[in-house]
Amino acid sequence: MTGGTALIQLRGVGLEVLAPAPTRILHPLDLDVAAGTSVTITGPSGAGKTTLASIIGALQPPSEGTYQFAGSEMMGRSKRDLAAFRSQHLGFVFQHSHLIEERSSIANVALGITDPTMSRMDRDQRCQHVLDLVGLASLANRRAADLSGGERHRVAIARALAKSPSVLIADEPTAALDQPTGQAILDLLAQVTARGATLIVVTHDVRAAEMADQVVSIVDGRRA
């Protein structure tokens, strides 16, 4: 961890599932992530990287330990509270971008804005702005199905950035991309921390690890 107060603080956080048979997915671990820093979670397939990211992203609760975000306890919160938390603080970039194929780039980006009080004009301006940030302003009205793999990832990043999250979680953002495109995506993600957001990247890509302020290595569900 480099500098700053811990925005994310995990203490003894682990995950064990009971069905169909008791299985330990993630052994208890501690992790501090400072605001505005980048963390890369690496490890072999099935090691528990994505599980750790999903716990940090409040997508699933851990079975043990404590999780504090900006000093607030996350454990025991209702699903509604967790949804509101994700809506307010987190942005996600998934491995396969998960765009709605039949809708335009800008419509996909608009899905990332969950604030119902934002006017339509402000929303459109915001979407156009983030598309500009990822270099796709000219493709705002192109259908997602007609975009290349790199462009789709950029739209997914724009969607995650649309609500100005304080934490951006990216799961294998370069896994399905060729090397130059993957590098471009990593450069784009690096700009996120430059703008003050915290970046958590789950990846096998050594380039991502080299760029990170902190590297967390997970092997067989344990922090190595």
Binding site: L59, R80, A83, F85, R86, S87, H98, T114
Partner: peptide
């Protein structure tokens, strides 16, 4: 499923 799960991940409430 994926689209609806995505909306949920992005903070859409169940309601």
């Amino acid at each position: 499923l994926r689209e609806l799960g995505l909306r949920s991940a992005m903070g859409w409430s169940r309601r």
